[in-house]
């Protein structure tokens, strides 16, 4: 694939992309991709459509995305100061952090004792869902389109009518002794 220019270099978008990429990391989309850190092979949450999902108001987080990006920037600046890091000022603060530091900050924000934890957990949930369930797309279409998450997980393709059926489903033989006290209804005694 030829390297392509950033589709959207809006700081809000790159900040949210960097967050999603921390949850499910992916390879860089083009050589100077700053949002995706390139910590793993294959597409991650960003390639899987995290921004499309977050931007869909069905999630309930869309109206809060400005706040998310702003707060993430504030936390990143504090974090950098605390660790004596100098951030590249041409980038949004969270984007300017390395993958390791992004991870450390997200771990802190989602830790049980953090006052904003529920707020950040919501963003991790949707970042993850973009990758492992493509919640912004019809599942059958996502698989047909080569969705990176569903493909990497090996999700089977549906039948032609878009429904899944697994005629072969059982080893078809007894594999353990039954509990000696099982009642005729098949329940524990």
């Amino acid at each position: 694939m030829p390297p392509r220019a950033p589709a959207d270099d809006n700081p809000r978008t790159t900040t949210l992309e960097a967050f999603a990429d921390t949850i499910v990391p992916g390879e860089k989309r083009y050589p100077d991709d700053v949002a995706v850190a390139g910590a793993a092979e294959g597409g991650g949450a960003v390639q899987a459509g995290a921004i499309e999902l977050l931007e869909w108001n069905a999630t309930g987080v869309t109206e809060g995305l400005d706040d998310y990006a702003r707060m993430l920037s504030d936390h990143a600046r504090d974090y950098a100061a605390e660790h004596g890091l100098t951030l590249d000022e041409s980038l949004p603060p969270f984007v300017a952090l390395s993958f390791e530091h992004r991870t450390a900050l997200v771990r802190r924000l989602t830790a049980p004792d953090h006052p904003e934890k529920p707020f950040w957990v919501l963003l991790t949930l949707f970042s993850n869902m973009a990758y492992d369930s493509a919640a912004h797309m019809s599942t059958a279409e996502a698989i047909a389109a080569g969705h990176p998450g569903l493909l990497a997980m090996g999700v089977a393709r549906p039948d032609e009518d878009g429904l899944w059926r697994f005629p072969a489903h059982s080893y078809g033989r007894p594999l353990a002794r039954l509990h000696p006290d099982t009642t005729p209804s098949g329940s524990p005694a």
């Binding site: 949850i23 499910v24 990391p25 910590a39 793993a40 991870t103 991790t124 990758y131 990497a152």
Partner: peptide, 9 residues
């Protein structure tokens, strides 16, 4: 979350 979790997935 992160790299190893993606590997687990």
């Amino acid at each position: 979350f992160g790299v190893k979790k993606k590997e687990m997935l």
